[in-house]
Design a protein around this nucleic acid. Structure first.
Length: 504
RNA sequence: GACCUGGUAGCUCAGCUGGUAGAGCAACGCCCUUUUAAGGCGUGGGCCCUGGGUUCGAAUCCCAGCCAGGUCACCA
């Protein structure tokens, strides 16, 4: 890093002092009253209308085309851009032409925040424009923004595309790439849609600890921290599952939380160290009931964002319209490999996996083998939203066993665009079974599995008081946002994705 | 973690098998009162990611490193 100023930065600082010398405050603090947005004017103003004849707008100056005593410029506010027409004798009506000749033409720079008053009209070229009668500097910009231009056919010139700069300086990305803002607005629509759906059903949005003395509810390596006063080790949560279930024990019928979770693992275009899940727990329900909820809720999300159940994701047009296809894991494997593994024992499964060229090794148990075959042969082919049910018990230490087959659990995932978008099950509420499942996890931990769960004595204590039959759900909000907004990388649905610190 | 690709002006990029660093936009100066991605003419602007090496000479070749993207591996 060098903190040498560039030529353009020096010029802008110079302009700043010239503005101050004119007696103009470059960073005024009073409210600037705005009575319209650029979008509103462009959408509604018609030639000859008496509306928008006294507008007040504020935003950034994004381009300037000076033609002597008159100029065209563009103002960008949070809703878009509109053209401004600035004539010398309007903003500097008397003898003193400083406002136009110096301030507007020389001392303002692209990116400066200005407030303008004026009236809307159409130019001879048919462009909706605001004729400026008053102009005020609201905040001076000292660094040059990238100048991105677009023509009528939507071709972009000199786009600001370098991913590293876009993510590290998201503020610049947002100013200059309007489609980026849209992604994040859609992400928020998704959250609002879910809140609306769940609140309407009477479920309570809650908050549970992020700093936890024990981490649980998922298989992952945690971040570790330390509390000075208590002098104790704390973990950043990897999930909030065990806390929400304690609330069900406590007597709530339905609780949910948008949970920022943290996992100390590798990064990829599907993994950021901190990410968001929504988890939902509803008493007296099971996973079948929860499947219906997911279908209905995700269908609503698509409609709230796009106005239709169909969403274009890369090459694929995905339709979230209910009902979605449902397979048991065995059925899915049979569908995509033609092999029925439902009656197979471990050795036969192992041979089958090898025959299918699935990468397996001797350490894998029956459940893991099935999961590997599914992951390798089926998941990638599931583009339209599909439920997969009945997972092996070994993979699911917090889920309830199936009545008719204790090797399986009442669990489902929804797969969409070849990726898991949710995970849900009938929650295990038998405290004795839960204890033995935790103990099995401890064994895995002793054998070196760094992601094995730890035994949470207080959680078991809560189950011993009694938890009603409960259905639980987790949805990866970032992954779902990627699908709903058609983005290839998780970094594109997070404002500030994690980046390695720059040296220097 | 492995491999591949990249890092040059504020932005987007050229710069071949080594010979003093280039374009467009942006900036600066001058001319222009309804123009439009880019009006005309002119002018500046670079630790060429960092550190070593080879060479008379390195943006370019070699080695090491940093950062990023992609593919794969790992992974609820």
């Amino acid at each position: 890093m060098h903190n040498q100023l560039s030529e353009q930065e020096i010029i802008r600082r110079d302009n700043l002092t010239k503005i101050i010398n004119l007696g103009i405050e470059p960073y005024p603090s009073e409210t600037y009253e705005v009575n319209a947005t650029t979008k509103e004017i462009k959408d509604n103003f018609k030639e000859g209308d008496t509306t928008y004849q006294s507008v007040s707008l504020a935003g950034r100056l994004m381009s300037r085309r000076i033609m002597g005593k008159a100029s065209f410029a563009e103002l960008q506010d949070s809703t878009g851009r509109i053209q401004l027409y600035v004539s010398r004798d309007d903003i500097a009506p008397g003898e003193d032409k400083t406002m136009y000749n110096d301030l507007f033409k020389k001392f303002l720079d692209l990116g400066d925040f200005i407030g303008i008053k004026g009236y809307a009209f159409y130019t001879q070229m048919g462009e909706c424009t605001v004729h400026v009668t008053e102009l005020k500097l609201l905040s001076k910009s000292l660094k040059p923004l990238p100048v991105v231009k677009r023509d009528e056919e939507g071709h972009t010139f000199d786009a600001f595309t370098d991913p590293e700069q876009r993510y590290r300086q998201r503020y610049v990305d947002l100013v200059v790439n309007p489609e980026v803002k849209k992604v994040f607005e859609q992400r928020t629509t998704m959250y609002n849609s879910i809140r609306e759906y769940l609140n309407q059903r009477g479920y309570l949005e809650v908050e549970t600890p992020i700093l936890q003395p024990l981490y649980g509810g998922a298989a992952a390596r945690p971040f570790v921290t330390h509390h000075n006063t208590l002098d104790m080790k704390l973990y950043l949560r990897i999930a909030n599952e065990l806390y929400l279930k304690r609330l069900i024990v406590g007597g709530f019928d339905g609780v949910y939380e948008f949970s920022k979770d943290f996992r100390n693992e590798g990064m990829s275009r599907f993994h950021n160290p901190e990410f968001t899940q929504i988890e939902l727990y509803v008493a007296y329900k099971d996973y079948e009931w929860m499947m219906n909820l997911v279908e209905e809720m995700v269908e609503k999300i698509a409609i709230d964002i796009h106005g239709t159940t169909e969403v274009q994701v890369g090459e694929n047009l995905i339709n979230f319209k209910r009902p979605w296809k449902r397979y048991t894991m065995y059925e899915a494997i049979q569908e995509f490999t033609g092999i029925d593994i439902s009656e197979m024992e471990e050795s036969e499964l192992f041979q089958t996996a090898k025959k299918l060229h699935v990468d397996v090794d001797e350490s894998m148990g029956k459940g893991k083998l099935i999961d590997e075959i599914f992951g390798e042969k089926c998941e990638g082919k599931l583009i339209q939203p599909t439920f997969i049910t009945d997972y092996p018990v070994e993979m699911s230490p917090l889920a309830k066993r199936k009545k008719d087959n204790p090797a399986l659990v009442e669990r489902f995932e929804a797969i969409c665009n070849a990726k898991e978008i949710c995970n849900a099950f009938s929650e295990l509420n038998d405290p004795l079974d839960q204890r033995s499942r935790f103990e099995a996890q401890l064994e895995l931990g002793k054998r070196g599995d760094e992601e094995a769960m730890v035994l949470d004595e207080d959680f078991l204590n809560s189950l011993e008081y009694g938890m009603p039959p409960t259905a639980g759900l987790g949805i990866g909000m970032d992954r779902l946002a990627m699908i709903m907004t058609n983005q290839k990388s998780i970094q594109d649905v997070l404002f500030f994705p994690q980046m390695k610190a720059k040296k220097g």
